[in-house]
Design a protein around this nucleic acid. Structure first.
Lengths: 208, 208
DNA sequence: GTAGTATCTGAATGGTGTTCAGATAGTATG
DNA sequence: CATACTATCTGAACACCATTCAGATACTAC
């Protein structure tokens, strides 16, 4: 088990005995560590050292390592949802063309996130942060952007009502699966644009 | 970090000093452990104890924990490929109906595996066993069954040549993504049949 | 300024991957 | 058969990990 020795030597000194906002600092350090080393290889001790605090201090804010990971997961999900909304707002307009562009950009943004931060993506979908109830995490936000996009595609006559019914499921699954397979090296990176081509072809007969 | 204490107490005695087939035994024990506790939480020491051997003995067969995990991953991929081929052979016939049934059963088999062995599925696609080259693992076997199935769908006129071009990509991605999202609790289990409905609707206009 | 409380420390426990010198047992050679 | 050789496995050690807990520290309210 090769320990990376990255970031291990940054015990950021703090001025006062009390940290101020230790919880947030711990989460940020943990995010950085996961980002670099992957969701496994996350070490509470290293996190504590990075923040400049003793390992025990962590337990004043999280009963457990799993709780820290869970909360970290929530933050990452939220960050991703923001990106999705930004991507959507970038392409205004009520035309069918605008709706189609939004759909594609939504998928692209999803993959761009996965591909640029594979370790964070693994944290989200690799069984590290358990989802409480049977539904949709608080990924509702991210899910809503897709729903809205599909509504537009239906309203502008791009997809049929029948297809609309399965829109979220098919699109989310395909984009999620392709992102997963690509970052794990089972599909080449270029495959994602092809996936989007294929998905659009399947859902409404292709480009236009 | 709650250690499960499952299987911890089975130091299977061996008769001779030499084990006989230690490597295979180690892999089998590791598979069992991953199956129960998840890919993280895999412990070489526990594996060694299960087999009835000292922790150091492992290093005579694997230079590293990661190598063990990698080899384990290969085995699991192979097991899955066998299931896929069995599922395909279960439904013979050259009709369009048979081809469509095969397609659906291929997806079902994929998901059934993921859902019945989520921890093994996580091992395969969670970044634990790094894939060497840029392509398709030795999942080629499993991939070939899909290719063959899509060829049949094209030959029997179920899908268009244009759609055929994206068949593997779209189908594999969608099934992989849905499986992933379901076992992580982001989608309900029932969603998978819906996904297949949606996928078929998208790819050739539905049940028919 | 004192009491009380939230925050953080230090040390200890038991588990982990990994290394390495040496013990053990099979195999080939005389 | 005895000896040398080699593959296989052990034991002890190291550094790191999560987690616990008694106690030290510093902020807050009275």
């Amino acid at each position: 088990m090769s320990s990376s020795n990255v970031l291990r030597s940054k015990p950021s000194q703090r001025d006062s005995y009390h940290h101020g906002d230790l919880k947030a600092a711990l989460l940020q350090a943990a995010a950085e560590l996961v980002r670099e080393n992957g969701p496994d290889h996350l070490s509470l001790r290293t996190v504590a050292t990075m923040v400049g605090v003793s390992p025990s201090a962590v337990y004043h804010y999280f009963p457990d390592k799993d709780f820290l990971v869970k909360e970290l997961g929530d933050q990452i999900f939220a960050r991703m949802a923001v990106m999705q909304q930004e991507a959507l707002s970038q392409i205004p307009g009520k035309s069918s063309r605008a709706a189609r562009l939004r759909f594609r950009e939504l998928g692209r943004t999803y993959f761009r996130w996965a591909n640029s931060e594979p370790n964070l993506f693994r944290l989200m979908f690799g069984g590290f942060c358990k989802v409480e109830k049977g539904g949709l995490h608080q990924d509702e936000d991210s899910f809503l952007t897709l729903t809205k996009c599909l509504d537009d595609l239906l309203a502008t006559g791009v997809i049929t009502p029948a297809m609309r019914k399965y829109g979220e499921l098919v699109a989310w699954s395909a984009v999620q699966g392709a992102s997963n397979l690509i970052i794990e090296g089972l599909l080449p990176e270029e495959a994602f644009e092809d996936l989007l081509d294929g998905l659009e072809l399947a859902m409404w007969g292709g480009a236009k």
